[in-house]
Design a protein around this nucleic acid. Structure first.
Lengths: 120, 120
DNA sequence: CTTCAACCTGGAGTGCGCTCCAGGTCAAGC
DNA sequence: GCTTGACCTGGAGCGCACTCCAGGTTGAAG
């Protein structure tokens, strides 16, 4: 149940590269990653969940500094839950704006393509 | 009718900074920008249309190199219209994928926020 | 026991897209 | 004529998020 995953598996399942996983650990985004006796990383299911969240946040354009802030809050304990929620909510609102803009510019783009179609 | 616009106006209307406008000219994205006798840039309505298009392409994540390619094709004349259309179509398809991913990750994010709501 | 792919570390390098700066020029309003 | 703010050039610098590298270690399979 409590799965133990190799670096390459964590990379495959999260969509991050091995270098990125190491980088995320180095900057303190991913803390306390376990090791085998030989020094190799072991990712728990919990680590995997964090990576999936990071994937979500990165894909929606959150800067790494803000993900660090979120992770830090989580490490501070349950009493930061409100602040964490607020951070995510603010981000979600930015994403909504981003989606609106993207849709609008996509429409412009399609319009432009139709212009070429009328040309032929 | 054939408007002549100052750099600051072009910046305001396109959403690019003055430095970015100069940069776009330097790399050849925006070609043949007019000058006053004193050496100041004068942007035509046509230049403005290009800037609006670049704004659209940038907002949808097209790399500058690809915008250069597009602009170059346009300069080559009408016989490149098909290739230009294809370039925009490929880009539009990438944007669609981007929108799908963004929507999916936004849903995850909202789910995560609901998790905090159930906590209180 | 050997092999070899996966993994390790610290640190340097990369690509992108601007952004800033110094040191000057231009032109509209007083 | 003077001031002042917008503008000019060439080139350096920056922030972000990785990505790559050298040189070494580990551990499962045969």
């Amino acid at each position: 149940m409590t799965g133990r995953h190799s670096p390459s598996e964590a990379a495959r399942r999260s969509g991050f590269s091995l270098d990125t996983l190491r980088y995320y650990e180095k900057i303190g985004l991913l803390a306390d990653v376990g090791r085998t006796s030989g020094g190799r990383r072991v990712f728990t299911d919990d680590d995997l969940s964090w990576l999936v969240l990071f994937r979500c946040l990165r894909d929606t354009g959150m800067p790494i500094a803000e993900m660090c802030r979120y992770a830090e809050l989580a490490r501070e304990g349950a009493h930061t839950a409100g602040e964490r929620r607020a951070l995510l909510e603010r981000h979600a609102q930015r994403v909504e704006e981003q989606m609106t803009l993207l849709q609008r510019q996509y429409d412009h783009l399609r319009e432009k393509i139709r212009f070429y179609d009328r040309l032929t």
